[in-house]
């Protein structure tokens, strides 16, 4: 039986997704319960629905970060790191599959919560309907606008999530290099990496800010400019994530011991 790299990666990914089942289930269940509750209780004041929806959106967006500690930490706590480290795969696959699983968790959670919110909004807002209401507020509701900017915004948050998860991996792995005060080291490294990476990427953000001031202000707004800013932000965040990811993989491949 020949075993290809992709097959191994997919098997690792499946395993991680299995580990994330409870968290994904929590978000799905919370969405269902809250959406149903809101549908029956918020008929009178649809605006009241915003706060609870935001809360579960926050939950869906935040949980993957918490899970990133569980997903890696458990391997040590359950001694399964003995199995993991003896597999004929390198850190790239191990950490990559975990990252992909956490991003999947993020996507599933946020998409489900958002979709629930959108459906709820259409159901709750009576005539003339949600789109009309938005249009009267001066918001561009053409489908391509919503899709392009919405998607870009989503990608930007996804890249941000990847960035935070990579820093989480990196700091946890460094924490594992010491015998004692592992969690403390992890916490310190996490903050330090965040700060250092922020410093390093600062010139890029500064550039983007300058661009913003020229092309995106209250006098001058174009969709193209907005999309460009979103796109560039995504790229910067992805670059940051990639750098920290590579650092984490190097630590995993060359430093981690049992």
């Amino acid at each position: 039986m020949q075993t290809s790299g992709w097959k191994k990666f997919f098997k690792l990914y499946t395993k991680e997704m299995w580990e994330l089942r409870p968290e994904i289930f929590i978000v799905l269940a919370a969405t269902l319960v809250i959406d149903i509750l809101l549908y029956f209780k918020a008929q009178e004041f649809p605006a009241l629905a915003v706060a609870p929806l935001m809360m579960i959106l926050g939950l869906a967006a935040f949980l993957p970060f918490i899970s990133s500690f569980k997903l890696l930490g458990r391997e040590w706590n359950f001694n399964t790191v003995y199995l993991l480290l003896s597999l004929p795969v390198r850190g790239g696959s191990i950490l990559g599959s975990k990252l992909l699983a956490l991003l999947s968790q993020y996507i599933i959670g946020t998409v489900v919560v958002s979709a629930g919110g959108v459906i709820l909004a259409f159901l709750l807002f009576p005539e003339p309907g949600l789109l009309e209401t938005l249009r009267t507020l001066g918001i561009d509701t053409r489908i391509q606008t919503m899709l392009s900017s919405g998607l870009l915004f989503f990608l930007m948050t996804l890249a941000g999530m990847a960035y935070v998860i990579c820093i989480s991996f990196f700091s946890q792995l460094l924490g594992r290099l010491v015998k004692r005060f592992s969690s403390l080291v992890t916490a310190v490294v996490f903050v330090a990496t965040f700060w250092l990476m922020g410093k390093a990427m600062n010139p890029l953000w500064q550039q983007l800010e300058n661009y913003n001031q020229v092309h995106l202000n209250q006098y001058n707004f174009s969709l193209a400019a907005l999309n460009q800013v979103l796109g560039i932000s995504t790229l910067i965040m992805m670059a940051g994530a990639a750098i920290v990811f590579i650092a984490a993989v190097l630590v995993y491949n060359h430093k981690i011991e049992l």
């Binding site: 075993t3 097959k7 098997k11 004929p88």
Partner: peptide
Amino acid sequence: DFIRTFYADW
């Protein structure tokens, strides 16, 4: 099933 995936000698 997990272990089988990684080894050609299974």
